[in-house]
């Protein structure tokens, strides 16, 4: 059981769907959505939110800085 629980918020309209966060995520939280944003990009979203540990890896590698990361101690 992870020590931390995390969550991310993706600014979907600015996401370009590059997938770098998908690869960077150590716990397989993120996938690209089937839906697209106004620019036609499949944006990133938390497909497996329970797995998120709030490590910020996705935020660090995101070229468009559209990810905000939250983290709390696992209850």
């Amino acid at each position: 059981m992870a020590k931390f629980k995390g969550a991310i918020v993706v600014e979907t309209e600015k996401c370009k769907g590059c997938s770098l966060c998908v690869v960077a995520c150590p716990t397989g939280v993120i996938e690209l959505a089937r839906d697209v944003n106004a620019k036609g990009y499949h944006y990133a979203y938390m497909a497996n939110p329970d797995a998120c540990i709030g490590c910020s890896s996705c935020g660090l590698v995101c070229p468009d800085t559209v990810i905000t990361v939250y983290r709390t101690k696992a209850s």
Binding site: K5, A7, P49, S56, T68, V69
Partner: peptide, 19 residues
Amino acid sequence: TATTEINKIINEDNLVYKK
């Protein structure tokens, strides 16, 4: 539910990375 749990995590006190 999962959604309410996420909403609990997403608050200023837990912020660790932002633009």
